[in-house]
Computed example of a mutant assay.
Amino acid sequence: MEHMFTRLEWLVGKEKLENLGTKSVALFGCGGVGGFAMEALVRTGIGRLVLIDGDKVTVSNLNRQLIATQETIGRRKVEVAKERALSIRPDMQVDTYDIVYTKEAYPDFIKDIKVDFVIDAIDMVTAKLAIIENCQELGIPCISSMGTGNKMHP
């Protein structure tokens, strides 16, 4: 059977592919943007994924969220996302935190989870700012998605 990452290895090389396997990424938000980011990370060989989301799948998620199906309605997003990740790559490490992140409630969270990279795919602006500021203080690269959730005229 062909190795799962053969085509990626052709693109980036064996050494870089092996390096990806040693990296850990925290993903804040498993919904619209986060679900697709998670899928890409799983399929590119990241070694450890830390999923953070304090919500459950709802009917209104069906039109835009990868993890939302009729079967997942009512379930916790981090658990559904973890199951999907492990159904693709059972060998990877997936940690979950079923929380709504705020700087006040979790002041040392990013430092404590020990990741190489952070992706912010949440809607709450104050939490986004806290994630970005904390990552800058810790020297952790961060991508922040400026989504349109709850915004008709941003």
Rank of each mutant, 00 (worst) to 15 (best):
M4I: 13
L8A: 03
W10A: 01
V12M: 14
V12P: 06
L20I: 06
C30E: 06
G31H: 13
G32M: 10
F36K: 05
A37T: 11
E39V: 04
L41W: 02
G45D: 01
G47A: 00
L49K: 08
V50S: 01
L51P: 03
D53Q: 00
G54W: 12
G54Y: 07
G54P: 09
K56R: 11
V57P: 05
V59R: 05
V59W: 02
S60T: 14
N61S: 07
L62D: 01
L62N: 05
R64G: 01
L66S: 09
A68T: 02
T69M: 13
T69S: 10
T72L: 13
I73H: 09
G74W: 11
G74M: 11
R75V: 05
R75D: 05
R76G: 03
V78F: 08
E79I: 01
A81P: 10
E83F: 01
R84W: 02
A85R: 06
L86S: 06
L86F: 12
I88F: 08
I88T: 12
R89N: 12
R89D: 03
P90Y: 08
D91P: 07
D91Q: 11
M92G: 02
Q93S: 13
V94Y: 10
D98Y: 15
I99L: 15
I99S: 11
V100T: 11
K103Y: 01
E104T: 09
A105E: 10
A105N: 08
P107Q: 13
D108E: 08
D108Y: 03
I110M: 00
D112G: 01
I113Y: 09
K114I: 00
K114A: 06
V115Q: 03
V115Y: 04
V115S: 07
F117Q: 06
V118I: 14
D120A: 06
M124R: 06
T126C: 08
A127M: 09
A127S: 15
A127W: 01
I132C: 15
I132M: 14
E137G: 13
G139D: 09
G139R: 12
P141F: 14
I143G: 02
S144Y: 10
S144V: 08
S145W: 05
S145I: 13
M146A: 10
M146Q: 04
N150A: 15
N150W: 08
M152P: 00
M152T: 04
H153G: 01
H153Q: 05
